[in-house]
């Protein structure tokens, strides 16, 4: 009897939804977690759209792209949220994304004029450390120091790839020498961000590759002011996270509405304290309290999207040969 009731409820629930359009959004895993932006954004958007917003989480940005390539034009997804600047060129090459008219008054360190992807948040990569440590001023000083760092593998992790690009953007052909200098500072290389950050919090390294915004989490959510990020004078590499609409979407208008929603105030206010990144459009009430304590890099580095695919092969080879010795 219990099962019958359950089945009936499920059936009613399903039929109740049948008239409501469903918007499927592929995103990375941490976006949909309880502390991530997913739940807040889903609730807020569903209040405005008379629709059912369904997030499907999978790995990270690179896993998202691989999934889209596997599914091709048959994909159920209407919107993909969470690709970043290093993946945009490869994403465009698939021909799966539609152009969009959604735009906003972006508050980014660079000008944004991509016609397919809409940025919703961004950040700078940085080495995070305890406040009891005097940080090095740049990669060369880090290489000369005895400081131990833990980084992510560029083959399996987005920040890992970001670090490759950072060194490449800052030093160009000098990058191999920088990596050779850093080799003895690298305690270890991890599969993803979580493992590296976990190791750092365990005290396995003095610094960990993360974001300039990471200390904001400790300050705001944990009231812990002992973490900060090291400002490097050669500049910090940027990561801009974007949302795009698939050409094969059966809900194109709803998809546009969602993308517009992602750059509107409700979402932008939520992102800094859920995704712990800078908002792409400054919310009316400004940044949350605590963000003013973060370091602001003097120079924003970003390799143009279209140059990334060629450069990353070269950078990976340099990284592998320097760290494999």
């Amino acid at each position: 009897m219990k099962y019958l009731t359950l089945a009936a409820t499920t059936f009613l629930a399903t039929s109740a939804y049948a008239d409501t359009p469903e918007l499927v959004v592929y995103t990375y895993d941490s976006f949909v977690s309880d502390w991530g932006p997913g739940p807040v954004i889903e609730k807020a958007f569903e209040q405005t759209c008379a629709c059912d917003l369904r997030f499907v989480g999978m790995g990270d940005g690179a896993a998202l792209l691989a999934r889209l390539k596997l599914e091709g034009a048959r994909s159920d997804a209407d919107v993909v949220l969470g690709l970043d600047t290093s993946l945009i060129a490869a994403a465009k090459e698939t021909g799966l994304f539609a152009q969009t008219a959604v735009t906003a008054d972006y508050d980014l360190p660079i000008a944004w004029n991509d016609d397919s992807f809409v940025p919703y948040d961004w950040g700078y990569f940085a080495f995070v450390h305890g406040t009891d440590l005097t940080p090095p001023a740049n990669f060369k000083a880090l290489a000369d120091s005895d400081l131990k760092i833990v980084i992510q593998d560029p083959r399996s992790s987005t920040p890992g790839l970001g670090l490759l690009m950072w060194v490449k953007a800052a030093y160009g052909d000098e990058a191999p020498a920088i990596w050779q200098g850093l080799a003895d500072n690298v305690v270890t290389v991890t599969k993803g961000w979580s493992e590296a950050y976990g190791l750092f919090l365990e005290g396995e390294a003095d610094m960990v590759l993360s974001y300039t915004t990471s200390p904001a989490y400790h300050l705001i959510a944990e009231e812990d002011a002992t973490k900060t990020a090291a400002a490097f004078d050669e500049g910090h590499y940027m990561q801009i996270e974007v949302v795009g609409k698939l050409a094969g979407s059966d809900q194109p208008d709803l998809a546009d509405a969602f993308m517009q929603f992602m750059v509107a105030d409700a979402a932008q206010t939520a992102l800094p304290t859920t995704n712990w990144m800078y908002p792409a459009v400054m919310p009316a009430e400004g940044l949350p309290k605590g963000f003013e304590t973060l370091i602001t890099p003097g120079k924003a580095l970003l390799i143009p999207n279209e140059d990334v695919p060629a450069l990353r092969e070269e950078a990976l080879a340099e990284w592998l040969s320097a760290l494999s010795q």
């Binding site: 895993d29 949909v32 977690s33 502390w35 499907v56 999978m58 896993a63 979580s194 976990g198 959510a221």
Partner: peptide, 27 residues
């Protein structure tokens, strides 16, 4: 991890999601 959505998570996946959101202690 390759198939999951919001509603169908196993405990290890949920643990990884917590770690991915800085929630090391909860993880």
């Amino acid at each position: 991890a390759l198939f999951a959505d919001q509603d169908r998570t196993t405990l290890p996946l949920q643990m990884y999601r917590l770690m991915g959101s800085y929630q090391m202690e909860a993880a």
